[in-house]
Design a protein around this nucleic acid. Structure first.
Lengths: 206, 206, 206, 206
DNA sequence: CATGAATGAGGTTTCATTCAT
DNA sequence: GATGAATGAAACCTCATTCAT
C-alpha cells in the first residue's frame, strides 16, 4: 500500500521542480523571454510533461506568484510576531518587506511584474485568488496601525488606508532600485525606503 | 533653398507618424505583442521604412518614452507656475501627476512599463538619457520642498530625497489602480492618493 | 457462475460509454479535433483504458460508424414494415432516411463524414465490414423497386441500380443542407428532397 | 519602368506556385494531414513566406476551392456552348461535370471536401464568396431546363429546383466512387451516373 | 484491468531583421 | 529614400501512443 501516496508525493515534487526551473528562468530572462520550451529543456522534461502538470503558461506563472505571496505573508508574520510598540511594528514590517524584496528578489519581482503590468494576464478567477493572498499581508500592517490609534499614539485615521498607502510607497521605492547609477546613488533607495517610514510615522503621530 | 527644410519636415512627420502608431499599438496590445510588422501595416508604411527611421525596436520604444517624459515635464511645469505656498505647490504637482496618469494614460503606462519591468531593455546610453528626462520633473518637486524649508515651514530635511519619496509613493499608488474591484473599491486609489499628500505634509511640517 | 457474464456486461457498458463520449466530441468538434485524451477526460476514464478497449483511434471511430449504420437499418426496416404500394414504400424509405438524418444527425454526419472524405482512414477489412452494413439498407429499397416492377407499375430496370441512384441523390441533397442561407432558403432542401422522389417515380413509371 | 508589373507577375506566380503545392499535398494526404510546414518544405519556401502570401491556412484553402469552382464553371460553359436540344444540353452538362470530377479529381475533391464536411471551416464572408461561385454553374443547368419547359418538352416545374436536384444527385453518385470494390463494381458508378440522367429526363418529360 | 505520467514530433503562427531592387 | 519579399528560429500547445506500476 501507500503507492498512491507515493505517486501523489512524486507528482508534487515534479510540479515543484518545474516551478523551480520556471522561476529561475523568469528571473534570468524576464517574462516574455521565458518559454515553455526553455523550461522543459532546463528541467530535463518533455514539453508535453509540463503541459501535463500545468494547463498552460498562465497557470504556471500564477502558481509562481502564489508561492511568492505565501512566502511574503510568512515573512511579515514573523516580523510582527514579537510584542512591540505600534511604530516599531510598522518599521519591522517595512523592513521585512524590504528584506523580502532582496532575499527573495525572484519572487518579489514576479509579484510586482504581474501587479504593475498594464496587460491583464490572468483570468478573473486567478486574479481574485492572487489578490486575496496579497490582502492577507496588508491585514497585518492594518492591525499595527490600529494598535497605534487605540493606544492614542496615532491620529484617528482609517488604519487600512494607511496600510495601503505604506505598501504603495514601499513598492514604488523598491522599483526605483532600477535607477541606481543614474538618478540614485548605489543603495540610496534603501535609506530612502527608511525615510519613508520616518516621514509617515511623523505624519501619523498626534 | 527650402527643399532641405521640406525634407527635414517630412522626415519628422514620418517619424512622428510611426511613433503615433507604435504608441497606439503598444497601449492596445502591450509591449511584446506589438511588432514592427504590425506597426508598419497600421501606419501604411513598409517594414523597411520603419527600420530606416529607427535602428531597431529598442530605439523606437525609447523614443516613445522620451516623448512621454517631455509631456509630463511640461504638465508639472504648468502646475507649479503660479505663485503659491510650498505645500500648495506640492499638492499641485501631486495632482498634476495624477491627472497626467489619467489624461495621458498611454504615456504614463509606457513610462512605467519600462520603469518597472525587471528586464533591462535599453542600452545604458538610452537609459541614461531617459533618466535625465525624468530627473527634470523631480527637480521641480525638489524646489517646492526647498521653498518650504527655507520658509521655515518644513523640517530641515534633504529636499531632493523628499521629492523622490513622494514620487515613489505616487507611482506605487497609481499602480494599485489595477486592484480596483478586488482589494480596492472603484476609484478608491484616487482618494488614497490624496491622503498620501496629507500624511506626507503632516510628516514634513515642523 | 455469473461473474463472467457480469464482467462481459461491464465491459460492454464501458465500451458503450466510450463510444457515447467519442460521438459527442466528434460531432462537437469534428474528427481531427477530437483526441483520445479529450475523450478520456470527458468520459472520466484513463487514456490507457480507452486503448484497452479499442486498439487505436481508427477502431474507435469505425465502431461509431457501425453503430450508426445499424440504427439506420433499423429505421428503414420499420418504415417499410407495413404493407403498401411500391411507390408508397419508396417514399416511406425516403422519408425514413431524411428523418434519420435529422433525428440522428450525429450518426448521419459520422456516416457521411467517412463516406465522403477523400482520405482513406479505415483498413480494408474494416471498410468492407462497414460497406456490408450499408448494403443491408440498400437491399430494402431494392426490394421495393422490384415489387413495383413485378406489379407492372415500373419500367423493367435493374432494381438495385435504382436503389443506389436514389440513395446517392438523397445523400447529395441532404449535404446541401449546409448551403442554407446562401444558395438555398431555409429548409428548402427538405422540399427539394421530396421533389427528388416525385421526379424519380415519374421517371420510373411505365 | 515595368518593374512594378514584373513584381506583380512574380507575386502571382509565387502565389500560384504555393497553391500548386498545397493542392498536391491536399490530395495526397487529405486536409488534416496537410500542414503549412509541409507545403513550405515541398515548395522550397520558408514557412514565413507562405504566411506572407496567405493570411492563414483558411485563406490558402479557400483560394484552392475558388480556383476549382472557376475551372468547373468554365468546363460547364464549354459543354453548353453549342446549340442543342434541352435534353442534350442537360446530358452534356452532366457529362461535363462527371468529366471534371475525373480530370480535375483534385479540385473536385477539394470542392466536395469543404461542401460536405460538417465542420464549418470558412468565415461567413469566404463561404459566401465560394457559394456565389458555385451558383454560377447551377445557373447554366437552370437555363437548360427552362428551355425545355419553354419548348413544351418538359413539365412546368421550377427549373432552378431541377438544376439543384440534378446537381445533388450527381454529387451523391460521384461520392459513391469510393465504394468501388465493395458495394459497387469497378466504374459501375459511371453507368449509374448516366442512368440518373435517363431516369430524371424520363421524369421531366410531359 | 486500469492508471496516468511521459514522450517528442509536429501543428499553426509571429517575429525582428535584412537586402535586392 | 522606400519597398516588400524572404528568412528561419522560436513561440505555445496538442497529439497518439506506450508502459511501468
Amino acid at each position: 500500500m501507500g503507492s498512491k501516496e507515493r505517486r501523489e508525493r512524486e507528482r508534487e515534487q515534479r510540479k515543484s521542480n518545474i516551478l523551480d526551473t520556471a522561476r529561475e528562468l523568469l528571473l534570468e530572462k524576464g517574462l516574455n523571454a521565458t518559454s515553455i520550451n526553455q523550461i522543459a529543456k532546463r528541467a530535463e522534461l518533455s514539453v508535453g510533461a509540463i503541459y501535463f502538470y500545468y494547463k498552460d503558461k498562465e497557470e504556471l506563472f500564477a502558481a509562481l506568484q502564489l508561492e511568492g505571496l505565501e512566502l511574503l505573508h510568512e515573512a511579515i508574520r514573523k516580523a510582527v510576531a514579537k510584542k512591540a510598540a505600534p511604530d516599531k511594528k510598522i518599521r519591522a514590517i517595512a523592513m521585512a518587506y524590504l528584506q523580502f524584496s532582496e532575499e527573495h528578489k525572484n519572487y518579489f519581482d514576479i509579484i510586482n511584474y504581474f501587479l504593475t503590468s498594464p496587460e491583464t494576464i490572468f483570468s478573473p478567477e486567478l486574479k481574485s485568488e492572487i489578490d486575496e493572498h496579497g490582502d492577507a499581508s496588508i491585514a497585518m500592517m492594518t492591525l499595527a496601525v490600529q494598535e497605534g490609534i487605540d493606544a492614542g499614539l496615532f491620529k484617528s485615521v482609517d488604519p487600512k488606508r494607511q496600510a495601503i498607502i505604506l505598501w504603495a510607497a514601499f513598492n514604488g521605492m523598491i522599483q526605483l532600485k532600477k535607477l541606481q547609477k543614474t538618478i540614485l546613488a548605489k543603495n540610496e533607495y534603501i535609506s530612502l525606503y527608511g525615510e519613508i517610514v520616518d516621514r509617515f510615522l511623523d505624519g501619523l503621530r498626534v
